[in-house]
Simulated assay, not measured.
Amino acid sequence: MTEMDIALCYESVLPSRGGAETYIGDLARRLARDGHAVHLYACRWDAAALPAATHYHRLDVPKGPRFRRPWLFAAACAEALTHARHDVSVGFDKTWGQDVLYPQGGLHAASRHHNLLKFDSRIARIVAAAGKLFDPAAWSFAELERKQYLGPKKPLIVVNSRMVRGHFEQFYGVAPDTLRVVHSAIDPLRFVAEDRPKRRQAERDTWGVSPDEPVGLFVAMNYRLKGLAPLIRAVAAVPRNRRFRIAVVGHPKFAKYERLARRLGVGDRLLFLGFRSDPKDAYFAADFLVHPTFYDPCSLVALEALACGLPVITTRYNGASELLTVPATGFVIDDPHDAQAFAAVIDQVLDPGYRRSASQAARYAANHWTFEQHYRALLDVFGEIRAAKRAA
């Protein structure tokens, strides 16, 4: 494919912060390596983490309340692009006017709906939904999303899972054939380490876990949305004669979950490790991943676990579940609140024979959908846009 002139639009690109900002940095470097001209429209960035040849377009956006700031950035970005002639312009979040919109965090409407599922009672969900009626940010983001996808200029939408594609049809009536699915991906080489066995044992020693004790890993910052409480209840439902631990990595504040584990009599099965800037050694020390999320467009945690040879237990609310082969590389549960069904899946993963075969299958799966393949699929989308614009 011949070189393209590509504009990337995101308010802040500080790749060390993770998430979309890390992704945009990775994408910019890969595009530049192929000789594509990369333009960045943003308010702030870390030039040291971006290609030297990047063309920067600073957008000065006035300060405002949280629910107004996306509108201000989006308007400034749309205005700046009217004076430019790029082959392809790409927006990643709450923007409009670009050729391609790639909402890596999924739809706000779907996120709002799924956030209610974390409550285990109907009454709690009704109360939470009522509270959102008085939240100006919820109203603002919903209106902005309608402007993005239902406005007069329809972008080509890229989504990172078929689940999110379904949400576009469910919430906005967008036909599935007008979207392109490009699953999220990672570079599995990030998790190659010659000293992995040594690091695994060293990490488990700090946990006080013996070499033969199975350990499940839970990694998340938002414990409530990612299903930590349902996980603890499921752990309590696994028979006491089954020996295993669950290591919890993420937010440094976890006292209420420790109390829940003690109240359910499984305080000894949970290891609360707090925040890790790099959880790689935790992956190395674990034997499987448990990610009972209530909403994840396409969880990178699940992909990282596969790259480390860990079978994955997740939910149908995670777009990354589409990349699993059940039961070869893991399991997909319907409802994290169903403690008995959840516990039965954990019990299956505790079988050492299963974990040996699943570990090999997980690595194989990780090596067959990588960031390079993701990048190539995205380039096809960009080429589609350029061809359409030239034909117009």
Results as ranks from 00 to 15, higher is better:
Pro51Ile: 04
Pro136Ala: 06
Asp338Trp: 03
Trp369Phe: 07
Tyr283Thr: 10
Arg125Ala: 00
Asp335Gly: 03
Arg245Ser: 06
Pro176Ile: 04
Arg240Gly: 11
Ala20Cys: 15
Ile6Cys: 12
His83Ile: 01
Ala236His: 07
Trp96Ser: 01
Phe275Ala: 13
Leu31Pro: 10
Arg204Gln: 08
Lys153Glu: 13
Arg146Phe: 00
Ala42Cys: 11
Arg376Ile: 00
Trp96Cys: 05
Glu11Ser: 14
Lys253Arg: 15
Lys94Pro: 00
Gly64Arg: 03
Arg66Gln: 12
Pro70Ile: 03
Asp60Pro: 01
Arg243Ala: 07
Phe272Val: 05
Gly105Gln: 04
Thr329Pro: 13
Ala366Gln: 10
Val192Thr: 10
Ala237Tyr: 07
Ala302Ile: 00
Cys308Met: 09
Tyr375Phe: 15
Glu203Tyr: 09
Ile232Val: 12
Tyr223Val: 07
Tyr364Asp: 15
Leu116Lys: 02
Leu310Arg: 03
Pro70Cys: 02
Gly319Ala: 07
Phe218Ser: 10
Tyr283Ile: 08
Ser121Gln: 00
Ile126Lys: 11
Leu189Val: 02
Val88Lys: 00
Trp96Asp: 02
Arg85Met: 03
Ser299Lys: 07
Lys389Ile: 01
Ala110Asn: 06
Leu8Thr: 08
Ser210Cys: 09
Leu40Glu: 09
Val90Met: 10
His337Thr: 08
Arg199Thr: 01
Gly131Leu: 02
Glu21Met: 14
Phe168Ile: 08
Arg390Asp: 09
Arg85Val: 02
Pro176Arg: 07
Met4Asp: 08
Gly208Ser: 05
Met163Lys: 09
Glu143Ala: 15
Leu225Phe: 08
Gly383Val: 02
Asn318Pro: 05
Gly265Glu: 08
Ala285Ser: 12
Ala302Asp: 15
Ala328His: 14
Leu306Ile: 03
Ile24Asp: 07
Ala109Ser: 15
Asn115His: 14
Tyr295Leu: 05
Phe92His: 09
Leu72Glu: 06
Asp177Val: 12
Leu179Asp: 09
Val248Lys: 00
Arg316Cys: 10
Thr329Gln: 08
Ser277Phe: 07
Thr22Leu: 15
Leu310Cys: 02
Ala366Cys: 12
Pro197His: 04
His368Gly: 10
Phe342Arg: 09
Leu50Phe: 06
Val248Thr: 02
Asp347Gly: 14
Ala366Leu: 08
Ala202Gly: 13
Ala282Val: 09
Ala138Trp: 03
Ala130Leu: 11
